[in-house]
């Protein structure tokens, strides 16, 4: 992957960058959002399958339709 592509990908993946502004309400909202995301990511860490590499490798389907 080119560096440029990686940068683009990071850019479109960030939702808080586009709405960044010094408005205190927005800052507060941003803080709340960050807390929410942290809470969510903690949850994800809890539910994510263990041995991700092995699990993904073993997931082979016959394909259908």
């Amino acid at each position: 992957m080119s560096q440029e592509k990686k940068r683009d990908l990071k850019k479109v993946g960030r939702r808080d960058e586009a709405s960044a502004s010094p408005n205190p309400e927005t800052v507060e909202k941003g803080k709340k959002m960050k807390e929410n995301i942290d809470k969510l990511l903690d949850e994800i860490d809890e539910v994510l399958e263990e041995n991700a590499e092995e699990f993904v490798k073993n997931y082979v389907q016959k394909g259908g339709e």
Partner: peptide, 20 residues
């Protein structure tokens, strides 16, 4: 969701946890 995870873990898109 995946980008947030990648940012927190400092990993990349080809990390097996991201595929998971």
């Amino acid at each position: 969701l995946l980008q947030s995870y990648i940012d927190r873990k400092g990993c990349d898109w080809d990390d097996p946890r991201v595929a998971m």
